[in-house]
Amino acid sequence: MVFWGSRRNTSFTYPANLFEHGIVFPHFAEAFSRPDLYWAFLLTIITLVLIDGTESLATIQAIDKIDPFKRKSDPNVTLRAMGVSNTASSLLGGLTIIPGGMKSTTNMLVGGRTLWANFYYACFQLIFLLFATTLINQIPKAAWQGCSYGSDGNCARTKSSSGSSRWARNRCLSPWSMSCDVMDLGPVGRHDRGHGDEDCLAREGCRTSVPRWVGAALKELFGNPVIRIGDGRGLVM
């Protein structure tokens, strides 16, 4: 599959100006003017609703099992949110929206515990879409697929509770399902050529222009928050 993907485009191409080329509204008038397509539309809508609903419920079930606080998601709220989000997204020409196992797993692994993780995720995604499409375009599809496969495998491992065979089955099926509905594979490294000098210059520019207090603040935010344990007379860390 990798060799098959190597003959295709290896990364997504996001438009440089998101507002100029990135938003395409649906052509409802043309769709409603073709009665012969009504049945196909209906089948597509029902299929997507069933797939999204099933995947959403499976995702929240898996995420609930790895929630450090053992909280339980409400399936009714999840399905309602999925319906409202998908309706709004479809009216604007967007894709379907469902709970993401990859995002939730990543958030938990890096310490996210509350709904603020969703907010931070949305903010960072918006920032990258608006200001860093060049970086997104350099990410090979294989890397996206690897992330999806890894997190999907984690979810599959969480879902399975009856032994290794079920885990193996889920593990084998996960790349198939992901490759069917998300993306195709491509080789890693094609876009690495020719960008080394620019990257070095960019890093050097950042290093010289960023004030020193920014580094201290980042160190405090990402470093070990424990200054010490004890009052200096006993255990010191």
């Binding site: 890096v110 405090e220 935010l221 990402f222 070990n224 928050p225 200054i227």
Partner: peptide, 19 residues
Amino acid sequence: YKIYLSSVTCMNLVKLDAA
């Protein structure tokens, strides 16, 4: 146990938990 903490956010909470 006196535990002196600097800023704690979601980005270094795992380190606090480990400590």
